[in-house]
Design a protein around this nucleic acid. Sequence first.
DNA 1: CCAGGTCTTTACAACGTTGTACACAACGTT
DNA 2: AACGTTGTGTACAACGTTGTAAAGACCTGG
Lengths: 344, 344
Amino acid sequence: MGASIRDVAQRAGVSVKTVSNVVNGFPFVSDATRAKVQLALTELDYRPNLGARLLRGGRTGTVALAVPEISSPYFAELAAQFVQQAKQHGWTLLIDETQGGKDGERLVLDGIKSHLVDGLIVSPLALTAQELSARRDRTPLVLLGERLIHAPVDHVTIDNVAGAKAATDHLITLGRTRIAAIGSQPHISGGTAALRLRGYKAALRAAKMPFDGDLVIPAKSYHRPDGYAAMTALLDLPQPPDAVFCFNDLMAIGALRALHERGHRVPEDVAVIGFDGIEEGAFYQPSLSTIAVDKTQIARLALDFLSQRIDGGASAEPQEAFAPFELLPRQSTLRRIDPDSPGR
Amino acid sequence: MGASIRDVAQRAGVSVKTVSNVVNGFPFVSDATRAKVQLALTELDYRPNLGARLLRGGRTGTVALAVPEISSPYFAELAAQFVQQAKQHGWTLLIDETQGGKDGERLVLDGIKSHLVDGLIVSPLALTAQELSARRDRTPLVLLGERLIHAPVDHVTIDNVAGAKAATDHLITLGRTRIAAIGSQPHISGGTAALRLRGYKAALRAAKMPFDGDLVIPAKSYHRPDGYAAMTALLDLPQPPDAVFCFNDLMAIGALRALHERGHRVPEDVAVIGFDGIEEGAFYQPSLSTIAVDKTQIARLALDFLSQRIDGGASAEPQEAFAPFELLPRQSTLRRIDPDSPGR
DNA sequence: CCAGGTCTTTACAACGTTGTACACAACGTT
DNA sequence: AACGTTGTGTACAACGTTGTAAAGACCTGG
């Protein structure tokens, strides 16, 4: 066991409370005693017991981020942003993985480790607004992503409809006429997939282009193999598309892979654009055009919300914020292009 | 505030200790009282206060994993393994990022959040054995990676020399004669880079091939742009190589990108192999040959060690374990190959 | 020299939990 | 009838910290 505040007090010849005051920077401590205590503090290598502090009603200085899948580049990069930004708030970030299932998400929300974290940021995939409202735990919470947008909880997202529309518009501007979409999720309403599909449709409508249901391929898990399979299916159509909007970058990379294997040129035969802006896309061959979401902003906004909640800006209405996105046209859509210097 | 054990006791009409006994599965509680308490427990939605438990000397059920960079695919995939395996031990995993610096690593080791975690797994980049031994914190610790191999601490790694030799052997078997290496770190001794370089040299020696220092390019941070820059430098040599062994997959992908931009065919003109076995490599164009390390095993071994330490297999000598690796030959080295089905 | 203030330090209680020690009942054995 | 045994429940203290309240030290001005 390490030294307790009691040991320090004894060594410095003062009361425990005085030590506590020094440790916590309480202003009214004379320089003389402060020095004595500091000395004892370092001599004994004192480290406050977080358990006791926590019990006393304090903060742990820890916030948790729960994502569906930490090995997915988008979430890994997002988590990295959160780690850094959290540091600036003086927080340690605890990263957890829900594995996309209801159970995992409910577990986190129900606060397995409640009391251990000061706040919670969750990127839900499966949970419904109903289940969310039923939660008992009182830990401050911020949601990420687009589900549950009507839940009574702070929420950070991006404008998925606008992003999807921008992606599709880009393909239209290039003169493509049969534009496919990969990643719809017909059985889930109100989710990211539904919003991106809406943006896709809106762009087609605005350009007075017909909507062809055969060109919309559903996907379950948004990984590379899903994009690969979807693209394969599209190429098997009697009339294959000349452009594809994938609802995330990972599927876009799977699609690019399928196109190459089947001997189609990108972007000449088929243009491909993704969504997310993961680093992997910038270095892929060809480099992947994408709608890059501002992960730094997402982290910043979410942590600001959380900070407010924790510091007791209590009563306030649930807030919502939108992080910006950016169209990054790269080789997978731009025909004539000098090899852009990688990394961008 | 949630209900405390006191509230439950009152409602059930028993003492607090009895409630505690029920909660913790203490055997000598009659079925009648047990039922009463259970009822009160669920009615009040009781959740034990971890702070108090912790203070009382218990465990938190949390272990921390500290990696240099969570956004790097290798570490993200590794972390995902740890999350899952930790779940099987009944632990929650706290992921932290040291950002590769000494300060970050020392901070973790010195136990900012000591008392909060039952154990610690650290993948050190910068810390020396000396600094490690000086640590005061008594939290059980397991190291990952190859630095500090002589420190008095449990350690999980892979045989980097053998892995690097296997990679280089593979290139030699293909008949390559000018084999470059990307990723040396001349100023750091005993680290991963040094070991992989040693394996590379051993393979050359065994094949009676000359060692050419010009073909060994140092790299600082092991990211895609580092591989890109290194490959560019190699191609500018009067006698460029016909094969490259990159010390990790990310740099290999950067190298592939550079080769493509300069119009070289892979593997016909230059064969490329990486190290790590990240998912990204399987889908790259061309798919990346690699030495795939068994991340599942790494996580399992490390958590087993930690489990032993925590459960007080105290006195035991520091242990060391090696996780297996596997040569995965793919398109970036194999000349004639039907497009291998992606994902492997 | 004292009242009243400011600055500094302290004793005490409380946070919620569990280990220890003990009380009490019910039982079977001498 | 007295005894130990076994099973079931309880009171109390302690873990390390900090908020509260109040005591002590030291000033200042009347």
